[in-house]
Amino acid sequence: MVTLLADGGGGGSLDWSLVSAVNGLATSLPQALDSALAFLGEYGVPLGSVLLLLAAWARARRGKGAPVAVAGVLWAGLAAGMALLLNLPVRAMVQRPRPFVSHPGQLDLLMSHQANGSFASDHATFTMALAVGLLLVDRRLGLVGIALAFFEGFLRVFMGVHYPSDVLGGFALGTATVLLLAPVAMAVLTPFTHALTRTALRPLVTAPKAVRSRAARTGNPAETAPEEPPHDLAA
C-alpha cells in the first residue's frame, strides 16, 4: 500500500528536527537514567495509567451514584482498548517507517524495537484514551492521567521510536474514540452496572455501606459522592 507519511519529510523536516533534538538529550544523561526513562516509556507509564484506572474505580464505587460512575470508569478502560484496535487499520494504511528506520545510525535508540508502523503511537493512543475517559468521571484523576499521557508522548520521542506527529496522532485517536462513542457506550454500560447491583457482583459496583459510612465520616466529598460528569455523560 502506498505510504502516506514518509520519513517525517526528510532530514530537514520539523518532525525529524524535533525527534533528533529530543532524542539527542539522551547523550548528555547517564546511561542508567536513559535506561530507566526507556523502561518508563515502554512499560512504566502505561502501567501507571492502568493503576490510575483502578484508583478511579475504587473511588467511584464509594459514592451514592456509584453505578453511573463505575460505568464511566468501565468505559474509560474499554475505550482505551478500542482505540488500540482502531489504530491497527490506521497503521496499515499509513505505513510510516519509524525514525530509526528512516534515519539509520542517526538516533540513540534506547531500547530495541520492532521496525513496524510508526503512525500512530499505540502508547500515546492508550494513555490518552484512558486519561480522557477518566476526566469524564473524576476530574482530579483525569488530569493526572493527562499529565501521564503527555509524559509518555515525550518519552516515545526521547527513545527514538516515534516522531512527534505520531504521538499527536495517537492523542487525537484516543480522545476521539472516547468522546465520540461515549453517549452510546454509557447508554449501554449504565443499565449494565445497575443490573450488577442486583447480583452477587454488587461489590464490584458499589462499596459496602460500612465503607461508605466511614468515607462520609472522613469528610472527603470525593468519596461520598461521585462527580457530576458521569451524570452528564449518561444523559
Rank of each mutant, 00 (worst) to 15 (best):
M1R: 04
L4H: 01
D7S: 08
G9W: 12
G11L: 15
A21R: 14
G24K: 10
S35K: 13
L37M: 11
G41F: 04
L47E: 03
L53M: 07
L53I: 09
A55G: 04
A56V: 05
W57K: 06
A58W: 14
G63S: 08
K64D: 08
P67I: 06
M82W: 07
L88V: 15
L88A: 13
Q95L: 06
P97S: 11
P99R: 11
F100S: 04
M111Y: 08
G117T: 01
F119N: 00
S121I: 03
A124W: 06
A129F: 06
L130I: 14
G133W: 09
L136M: 14
V137C: 09
G145D: 07
I146G: 05
A147F: 11
L148R: 05
A149P: 03
A149E: 03
G153K: 01
V157T: 13
V157H: 01
V161R: 06
Y163A: 00
S165P: 00
L168S: 08
G169S: 07
A172N: 00
V178W: 06
L179P: 07
A185T: 11
M186V: 08
T190S: 12
T193L: 09
T193S: 07
R198L: 11
T199Y: 09
T199R: 07
R202C: 05
T206R: 14
P208L: 10
K209A: 15
A215C: 09
A222R: 08
E228K: 14
P230V: 10
A234F: 12
A234V: 13
A235F: 12
A235W: 13
